[in-house]
Structure formats: structure tokens, C-alpha cells
């Protein structure tokens, strides 16, 4: 029984069957990759997990509880954090403030009327945020305006914001998309470091096969909204069905 159990999930947009009877089981504290050609339904599946979309049918269980019908903030409070395809950060705030906000969310819950306390006197959370920034090598940038940084930095910041909450499940939507080579390598190193601590489950969507094969312990291949195969990276590499999905039958 995995920490995340997706059973028979269907999602239809008008005439398009985006997800058709998707089953997925992610084991606790492993790294699970979901790959597939464009339009396979990877992002739709992720959106169903975080409450952005509600599936037409099926069930999504996380840690023994259903996530369906819950709002995104409730699902996050259950322990699921998400890194977006294009970095979603608080562009108008400083780097440190960006990391402080999830610290407050973790400690105080979804809402607390803390209008009299001062941010500057929250030493404990500040230390927590600074530690996290050191972990992702951004401590020197803590007073930078988050919106002015490079894409790679924004991505690392977003990961720091997710990791500082110590989520049980981290969802990563193409974490290296549009990154320079050096940034990609840094990101892989960071993700590997997190994986090897074995205290967090990762579910990663990725196009870059380098990233997938160096990170994942299980891989699910989606095509046209349905899972083709689920196996270890070694078995996936030469799988005829996977080649077919990616390259088309004629070239096999």
C-alpha cells in the first residue's frame, strides 16, 4: 500500500479524454517518475492530485485519506507540496520572505490572525528559513528581490519553499524545464540529496530522460491519458511499448 494511491481516475475536457482509468501507486520515501509524450495527461494527473482539478470519477487517496473535493490549501496542509512547471514564487517579496511564508503556514495552519506580532521577532522561523536557504545554496541571496532572479534561482527558491514545510509528498512538474545545463545539474544534485535522505516521497514529471533515469526508482509511462507500463528504469529503457508511444510504430 503506497502513500499515494490513485484508482480508476477519469477526466474529460469536452470531447477529449485527458485521463482514462489511471491507476498509480507511489511507495513511501521513493522517487517515482511519470513520463510520456506531450498531451499524455501528466500535468492533468498532477492537477487532480493537488485539488486544482477534480476528476470525473475514481479515487485519490493520500496517507489513507481522500484528497478529492479538498481545496489546494487543505491538500497542502495534509502534506503535499508542489513545484510548478514555471516557477510560482512571490515575485514582489524578498527571498527570505518567500521561505518564511511556508514556515508560517506549517506552524500556524491555513489562517491565523497574527497582526500584532512582528515578523522580525520570529527568530525560530527565521532560523528555519535561513537553514533551508543554505541547503539550496541561496543564503547569500536572502535579501534579493525574488522576481529579479534567474530562472534557475527561482526554481531553487520554489523548491526551498516546498521543502521547508517538510512535506510527505513532493510533486515536481518538469523541475528542469527551460534551464541551462549547469542549473539542471545543480537541480539534479539537489533532488538526489533530498531523495537519499529517505524522508520524503517524490513524484516527478519530466521530459529530460537524463533526469528521469538518474533520479527515479519507479517509472510510469502515460500515453493518451492511460498508463502503458510501470516498471524500474532499467526495464523501461528498452520496453517496446514505450518506444512505440514516443517514436511511433513505423520507426520501431
Amino acid at each position: 500500500m503506497g502513500i499515494l494511491e490513485v484508482k480508476g481516475v477519469n477526466k474529460r475536457f469536452g470531447g477529449l479524454q485527458a485521463l482514462g482509468d489511471v491507476n498509480l501507486s507511489v511507495t513511501e520515501n521513493t522517487c517515482h517518475a511519470i513520463i510520456g509524450p506531450n498531451g499524455a495527461g501528466k500535468s492533468t494527473l498532477l492537477n487532480c492530485l493537488v485539488g486544482k482539478l477534480i476528476p470525473d470519477s475514481g479515487s485519490v487517496m493520500f496517507d489513507g485519506q481522500s484528497v478529492l473535493g479538498r481545496k489546494p490549501f487543505e491538500i497542502n496542509q495534509m502534506g503535499i507540496s508542489r513545484v510548478f512547471q514555471t516557477p510560482e514564487i512571490f515575485a514582489d517579496l524578498s527571498v527570505l520572505e518567500n521561505v518564511l511564508i511556508p514556515c508560517f503556514a506549517k506552524r500556524d495552519g491555513a489562517f491565523r490572525m497574527h497582526a500584532v506580532e512582528q515578523v522580525s521577532s520570529e527568530a525560530e522561523l527565521r532560523d528555519m528559513a535561513l537553514h533551508m536557504l543554505e541547503d539550496v545554496n541561496m543564503a547569500d541571496k536572502r535579501d534579493h528581490h525574488a522576481g529579479t532572479m534567474s530562472r534557475g534561482d527561482k526554481r531553487r527558491l520554489e523548491m526551498a519553499m516546498c521543502l521547508v514545510q517538510k512535506p510527505k509528498l513532493l510533486l515536481l512538474d518538469e523541475p528542469t524545464a527551460g534551464m541551462a545545463r549547469a542549473d539542471t545539474n545543480n537541480t539534479i544534485d539537489l533532488l538526489k540529496k533530498i531523495r537519499d535522505r529517505r524522508d520524503i516521497t517524490m513524484c516527478i514529471i519530466e521530459h529530460d530522460m537524463n533526469v528521469v533515469f538518474s533520479m527515479a526508482e519507479r517509472i510510469t509511462v502515460l500515453a493518451q491519458g492511460t498508463p502503458l507500463v510501470e516498471d524500474t528504469p532499467d526495464n523501461i529503457k528498452g520496453h517496446p511499448k514505450v518506444r512505440e508511444a514516443y517514436l511511433g510504430e513505423a520507426q520501431v
Binding site: 507540496s81 514582489d92 511556508p102 503556514a105 519553499m161
Partner: peptide, 19 residues
């Protein structure tokens, strides 16, 4: 700080566990 976060990126705020 949360109010400024609302202005900056409400989506991120919601996915960070804040209502």
C-alpha cells in the same frame, strides 16, 4: 506579510497551505 503574498501570487499562497 500574508497580505503582500496575496498581492504577489495568490495561487502560490494557496498551494503553500494558506487560505
Amino acid at each position: 506579510l500574508m497580505l503582500r503574498a496575496v498581492k504577489s501570487n495568490q495561487q502560490r499562497l494557496n498551494y503553500t497551505g494558506l487560505n
